[in-house]
Design a protein around this nucleic acid. Structure first.
Length: 507
RNA sequence: CGGAGCGUAGCGCAGUCCGGUUAGCGCGCUUGGUUCGGGACCAAGAGGUCGGAGGUUCAAAUCCUCUCGCUCCGACCA
């Protein structure tokens, strides 16, 4: 008999975290690399997760008054050039279309022909094209606010890619709004940050810290950038969403003007905000364990999987019938304002393989159902947030009634677990040596999981940021919004500081 | 773009240094059987112009030249 691995995923998180991540993506059948460099194929289970993320967020955007629209994939190069900082930030990572057809060359191979007069850039983000349109749509203060969201794919030509966390092409959502006053635009920026925070914590069960980015980490062209930062299980930070207050930078560049109530010509105040398929990477690294993915119930493509246990042909029909009946009952149950998604796994094959395939995919609840359960009219319940040893038997009717409570309990448990982990790895540091020690792995060749979030005073200088980035590869993730004012001294320079910021290694 | 490594069956690899029968192994796949609250076992089978092009040679996965692609480590970043 082949020796059984202790865990479904090899290596474990502790052994090799980056490799563990790749293996989970593969084992959970979320996505794989495509023949196109840096671009991924999102497979059904991963895409269903994205659809659920999209569905919830879309509802939240609409509740806050936004409408969806769609803008072109291609942006004339000249548009990008209009906002100086914006170009500078994105110029290095743009895919550029220069031709519009292919011709057979002398060797029979196709070569680009029909050069464009003006190259088109594949959107790395849409401020410029949307700004151009906003300028047309805005004449009076009565046209404002413009509250637009777009679900789209974008391309950023990154040097190195990792499935979900950084791919050349990725799916995202970008909100773009224009307002007649600074105050309203600032409020919009914070409102959408709150939407992201709520979504991350309540749906993804991923605790986040809301904060503002320092100047060096700011979105190119923004006046201020706010973010939600989450801690992954290797204690590195993941920027999970951003909301930008763009001031009048883009409205000046794109001429988004309106006449106010007094008949005065004014530039609009704009914002933009976005989250991407990167969230799925965050989900994996927040909840996943050495047996694979764990999907929070509120985002699960399937809440419950029923696995019929078949002994022989004589009883198989009874078992299937019982499972189908149970599935039908469960599908009528409401959980989180929608009907339970239930799947009966009737695939041929060994029971063990099937159970483990669902464990790796992270389905919240799995029921192993055979003749014994039928005889006692009960179900054998496995919770993905608990160990295999903790499976338990429950009367069928009781389970049907309690299923939503069980799922709610799993959802809460995942959040609590993640929050405890994060809080245990936040350290208040006031001393430079301790700071350096905190972020230095014992094994430099193959760094073990180390560090975390360091809450420290900072003198506000980019020089300090530069120094710790060079020395330790640590950056300021954000200046927390709920951070109290507190007199202290910069952990690096010793200069005066009035509040603490979060330092961490990041994705 | 720098530094390292790798391209041999669907996947993971051995063989390459030192050229030589019909290119192997594990997993997976197909068929049959034995198991059965479990990630099984036995047997039989299918599957490869060894990343590509050129060269050296009686003979190339193996040596030489050129090329293409991928992964990892840096710089860049949601």
């Amino acid at each position: 008999m082949a020796s059984q691995p202790k865990t479904a995923i090899t290596p474990t998180r502790l052994d090799d975290y980056p490799e563990w991540y790749q293996q989970v993506v593969k084992a959970a059948d979320l996505a794989e690399n495509s023949p196109v460099r840096g671009c991924m194929v999102i497979k059904p289970w991963g895409y269903a997760l994205w659809e659920n993320i999209r569905g919830v967020l879309d509802g939240m955007f609409k509740e806050t008054g936004h409408k969806n629209a769609y803008f072109p994939l291609f942006i004339p190069k000249s548009f990008l050039e209009k906002e100086a900082q914006h170009v500078e930030g994105f110029a290095k990572e743009c895919a550029v279309v220069t031709h519009h057809r292919l011709q057979a060359g002398p060797d029979g191979k196709l070569v680009p022909a029909g050069e464009l007069e003006e190259p088109l850039v594949v959107r790395p983000t849409s401020e410029t094209i949307i700004g151009t349109m906003f300028a047309k749509w805005t004449q009076s203060y009565r046209d404002l606010p413009l509250l637009i969201n777009q679900w789209a794919n974008i391309v950023r030509w990154e040097m190195r890619t990792r499935l979900f966390l950084r791919t050349t092409e990725f799916l995202w959502q970008e909100g773009h709004t224009a307002h007649s006053t600074l105050k309203e635009a600032q409020e919009e920026t914070m409102k959408m940050l709150d939407v992201y925070g709520k979504f991350a914590e309540e749906y993804m069960a991923m605790p986040v810290i809301k904060g503002e980015k320092t100047e060096s980490e700011r979105f190119p062209g923004a006046v201020s950038t706010y973010c939600i930062e989450a801690m992954m299980q290797d204690r590195k930070a993941l920027q999970a969403g951003t909301s930008h207050f763009l001031g009048q930078n883009f409205s000046r560049a794109f001429d988004i003007k309106f006449l106010d109530a007094e008949g005065k010509d004014e530039y609009a105040w704009t914002t933009s905000w976005g989250v991407s398929t990167r969230l799925i990477g965050g989900l994996i690294m927040t909840h996943g364990d050495d047996d694979g993915l764990i999907v929070p119930p509120r985002l699960a493509p399937s809440h419950i999987v029923i696995l019929p246990i078949i002994h022989d042909d004589a009883t198989s029909n009874d078992v299937f019938e019982y499972c189908d009946k149970l599935a039908a009952e469960l599908k009528r149950v409401i959980y989180d304002d929608r009907r339970l998604e239930v799947e009966v796994d009737k695939r041929e094959g060994r029971g063990g393989d099937k159970v483990w395939s669902w464990i790796k995919k992270g389905v919240p609840v799995y029921l192993e159902t055979g003749p014994r359960d039928i005889a006692s009219d009960s179900v054998f319940v496995g919770r993905r947030d608990k160990s295999r040893k903790e499976r338990f038997t429950m009367q069928r009717t009781e389970f049907v009634n309690k299923a939503p409570d069980i799922l709610t309990d799993i959802q809460n448990n995942l959040f609590t677990r993640a929050k405890t982990f994060r809080d245990n790895n936040i350290r208040i540091i006031d001393n430079k040596d301790e700071f350096y020690e905190f972020f230095t792995p014992a094994n430099k060749e193959k760094p073990e999981i180390h560090g975390g979030f360091a809450l420290c005073h900072w003198n506000g200088s980019a020089q300090v940021e530069e120094q710790i980035k060079n020395d330790l590869n640590v950056t300021i993730r954000c200046i927390p919004l709920d951070g109290k004012t507190e007199e202290g001294k910069c952990v690096i320079s010793g200069e005066k500081s009035s509040h603490r910021v979060i330092f961490a290694k990041s994705y």
